[in-house]
Design a protein around this nucleic acid. Structure first.
Length: 440
RNA sequence: GUGGAUGUAGCUCAGCUGGUAGAGCGCGGGAUUGUGGAUCCCGAUGUCGCGGGUUCAAGCCCCGUCUUCCACCCCA
């Protein structure tokens, strides 16, 4: 039969899974460093848990089917709604606020294209149970620290608040909610299409032309954070908008105090398509033009109404979500993907069957000392084994022939420098460690 | 869901206006049998995505289908 994978699903061969795994480790360590604790949820949920939480577009992209017991189920579409379900379901046993992180695959029946997959890993950090600017800032700091941990310089986090968008539209005279949402979706395209086209789209939805013009006059695509906030504040005319701007300003102050101010920018055109966001929203874009079109790599926001859909208590929450596979795809395109550790530094050759025990014994000794070692499992001529060692990317080859066994010694060969030396068994572990770490 | 491309050895690709396939890399073997990466020599690689059609003849033309990719929509 023909081996194949489903459309939009991929195998991760060692060459890419190694750097990918390294990223996951760095991300998890950073989240833990920020006080988030791990949590996992099932891949499969009842359909009713997920349906209706993301908006029409999201609903269409749910992988849904009937299981063997005729239950309507769906693969999780993100990690946020399952978290909301968990918080509601276990609120008696969870201490709020809950700071949890989760790194796990999600599934969307989307049409695959550049940077978009049907199965991909999201890395989420959320704080549930409190509505505060500090919670907002803490989540943002965790996300920004992840960028630092991954050594990603060319990224900017665009901040906005739904209250600002709605407030500006409201004060301009767009009162209808559906019209506001349609306008926001149009405004979201300001960085892709010219302002007059956005204006035409708004008019097409039913916004009077002069109103559309007045609203768009308030938006420049991007401004320095605090300066932009001031401009937005001057246009605010009702309490809700004022509060939204004040919250934004406070969050920016806090994130800046934490040392991440150079990475964030106020961007009134950020809208977010998911229905459950209620306040602060953000998207992270890579600044390199070559991958600008790949889309947001780390997004999120505040969703104060979502958990309440699963229980009587209104539990506010805020979170951030990094798209690991999309980010990795961008880094690969830019040639910035970290060197994966798909290589094992020490390759132990097996001279002949009679020395196999000595070879395994040596490997055991090295591994007990924490060194990564591999024993040649194929056999054959020593030259072939050294060739395999080189191809595997080993730094050091160990040779344990009859002479070495008799003398209780090991020959180490530095495959990069081409030199070799004989060591006594007692000193070989330390010597190997030094050889591995030795620069060329 | 809409639109546009793509599909030839393991990989990247070439194949002129139709006449039953090539390169590089990789892979296997070898250059006096306890030493790799460089070089050299030799060698194997393919139902040319799949199914139909046109033709004396199709990798090349036509239709369908699947795959991958790109744009829109939306999103990580």
């Amino acid at each position: 039969m023909e081996p194949r994978t489903l459309k939009g699903f991929r195998d991760y061969l060692p060459a890419i899974e190694a750097p990918r795994k390294a990223m996951i480790r760095a991300i998890e360590a950073t989240f833990e460093c920020h006080g988030f604790v791990p949590l996992q949820t099932p891949a499969l949920e009842y359909l009713e848990t997920l349906a209706g939480k993301y908006g029409d577009e999201g609903d269409k992209l749910l992988y849904r089917f009937a299981d063997h017991g005729a239950r309507d189920v769906a693969l999780r579409y993100d990690l946020t709604v399952p978290l909301a379900r968990v918080v509601a379901q276990h609120r008696g046993e969870l201490q709020l606020p809950l700071r949890r992180y989760q790194v796990a695959p999600v599934w969307r029946a989307d049409k695959p294209q550049r940077g978009r997959f049907r199965e991909f890993v999201q890395c989420d950090a959320d704080i549930a149970g409190v509505d505060s600017a500090i919670a907002d800032a803490e989540v943002l700091c965790a996300g920004l620290a992840v960028l630092d941990a991954l050594h990603i310089d060319g990224a900017r986090l665009h901040l906005n608040h739904r209250g600002v968008l709605f407030g500006l539209l409201r004060t301009a005279g767009v009162a209808d909610l559906a019209l506001q949402l349609a306008s926001i979706r149009a405004i979201d395209k300001l960085d892709k299409i010219p302002a007059h086209a956005v204006r035409a789209e708004m008019v097409g939805h039913g916004v009077p032309d002069e109103v559309a013009g007045a609203v768009l006059a308030r938006f420049t695509t991007e401004r320095p954070a605090l300066e932009g906030l001031d401009a937005a504040l001057s246009t605010a005319s009702d309490a809700a908008t004022f509060e939204a701007v004040a919250r934004l300003r406070r969050v920016v102050e806090l994130v800046t105090a934490a040392g991440h101010g150079d990475r964030i920018v106020f961007d009134p055109t950020i809208a977010r398509g998911l229905d459950y966001y209620t306040g602060l929203i953000y998207e992270t874009r890579l600044t390199d033009a070559r991958v600008a079109g790949i889309g947001a790599v780390m997004s999120g926001g505040r969703y104060d109404g979502l958990i309440g859909l699963f229980c009587k208590d209104a539990i506010p929450a805020v979170g951030i979500s990094l798209g690991l596979d999309r980010l990795l795809a961008a880094l690969v395109e830019l040639g910035l993907a970290a060197d994966g550790d798909a290589r094992v530094p020490v390759y132990v050759t097996v001279f002949d069957p009679s020395t196999a025990q000595a070879a395994l014994g040596l490997a055991g000794r090295l591994r007990a000392a924490g060194l990564r070692a591999e024993v040649d499992a194929v056999g054959g001529k020593l030259g072939k084994q050294l060739e395999r060692a080189s191809k595997r990317g080993a730094r050091v080859a160990a040779i344990v022939g009859p002479e070495e066994v008799a003398a209780q010694t090991v020959v180490l060969k530095d495959l990069r420098r081409g030199v070799q030396e004989r060591f006594a068994l007692e000193t070989v572990t330390q010597a190997t460690r030094e050889w591995i770490e030795r620069p060329d």
